[in-house]
Design a protein around this nucleic acid. Structure first.
Lengths: 178, 178
DNA sequence: GCGCATTCCTTGGCCGACCAAGTTAATCTC
DNA sequence: GAGATTAACTTGGTCGGCCAAGGAATGCGC
């Protein structure tokens, strides 16, 4: 049922016709595909972001700050789910670049509040634009249906990888409901 | 034709129901998904590989060496499509770890030949196993049909990102034929 | 043969990401 | 309230990546 095997011609038995795949990766053609797509996607994002004075990865931090306003660093860390030390260093650089401001939390002298600067508000719209451009570049030639399919499949893959990593609040919650 | 909209219930108009997505990423829900899946997949791979004494990324280098035997470093660089300096440093560490041997090419005194050591042959089977495990973990719960679908969609996405990056020989060739 | 461009690799620097260990402040316990 | 525990960063180190710049050998033009 709902067989969509994309006509015939290139599809073999295993997913992702294993055309000249390393022997050691024959057991995981889709994983190979995921790795390559991941790298290309990150590179593409990096290129778009470089023009805006952002390094790849910093976008996610800024996105959360734009959404949430002034926020405890600890909460930011939970939100982006990165190592605390990683966030510390990224924030130091973002602060030096003028995209972010940090000040001690008056209510808890160990904590620090982080917020995006007014100067970075221009960045928001540009990041928004770049992100849309990246999306179209990624999905070019795919029909709306195929895009939805892809999104669904990736969501399930994400859930799979999350439950194993056991470290992904949003997906865990999503799982519990489904 | 071939509408597979996965019944109804959760799907909205845009791909990847934009549940609590950062405002700045509303234009690119699938890109967001790709980023997250990429990170989780890399983490999962890293965990499996750590037990084998490999750092994430080194697998691809080793895979090519296992396949191709002694090889010029320049060819290895082309094969994995990484920065030459990255490969140099990775090889220095892999050599120090005993996974790889390097010697000057007698036919070209600037070049260096690289090969996997005999000791690393045990690694091959373990990497193969880990890679299969990762694949199953990634694709758990997906039917064979869905796996094929996903593989096809990712292949097209890869092609999209490649042509823009203009730096992906295999896909370029694949494109020319299709 | 000589000079110049090309190829091949290395070094240094930077950033994202991790881990391990440490510091300071809040909190919990008795 | 003193002492132990926990929470919130920070620092230092390591790796995978990139870029820029450099040194060394090869190849080409003439």
């Amino acid at each position: 049922m709902k067989a969509v095997t994309k006509a015939a011609g290139a599809a073999q038995d295993d997913p992702a016709c294993s055309e000249r795949l390393p022997l050691a990766a024959r057991n995981g053609p889709v994983s190979m595909l995921v790795s390559r797509v991941a790298r290309l996607h990150r590179i593409a994002a990096g290129k778009l972001l470089k023009g805006l004075g952002l390094y790849p990865g910093q976008e996610f931090l800024m996105m959360h700050l734009w959404d949430a306003g002034p926020v405890r660093q600890s909460e930011l860390i939970k939100a982006v789910d990165l190592d605390p030390s990683t966030v510390t260093k990224m924030l130091q650089r973002l602060e030096q670049a003028g995209h972010v401001r940090r000040r001690p939390d008056p209510e808890d002298r160990r904590a620090v509040l982080v917020e995006s600067t007014e100067a970075s508000c221009g960045l928001l719209t540009e990041v928004q634009r770049s992100w849309g451009e990246l999306e179209e570049q990624t999905l070019a030639g795919l029909t709306p249906d195929e895009r939805i399919q892809l999104a669904h499949l990736l969501t399930r893959v994400e859930a799979n990888l999350c439950t194993e990593t056991a470290d992904c609040p949003e997906v865990a919650r999503r799982e519990a409901l489904g």
